[in-house]
């Protein structure tokens, strides 16, 4: 499973990266959460908001930063 946070490096994006790492740790997911700062990659997904949480290359959350629980739900949904 590939978990990526894509963002421009703004505080909101940093926060999403931090809580996604926390969510992955709480779910015992060994994979590294990757932080992508290349904005072109956001655009190549067809998106225009930052930050983005992408799982296996697919956008799962776009343009806002929810809490840890919500991220865990999103990740779990992708696993099943």
């Amino acid at each position: 499973m590939k978990i990526q946070v894509l963002g421009s490096g703004c505080p909101t994006c940093e926060k999403l990266f931090e809580i996604t790492k926390q969510a992955a740790a709480e779910l015992n997911i060994a994979d590294e959460v990757e932080y992508v700062k290349d904005i072109q990659q956001i655009l190549n997904m067809g998106l225009m908001s930052s930050p983005v949480l992408a799982i296996n290359g697919k956008p799962a959350l776009v343009g806002f930063t929810p809490d840890v629980e919500k991220i865990k739900t999103v990740i779990k949904k992708q696993i099943s």
Binding site: T12, C13, L43, M48, S50, G63
Partner: peptide
């Protein structure tokens, strides 16, 4: 449309491209 300065660049690129 929601706007925050963190989205200014992707927004701009996304429109133009």
């Amino acid at each position: 449309t929601p706007f925050c300065s963190c989205s200014a660049i992707p927004l701009f690129l996304g429109f133009v491209q």
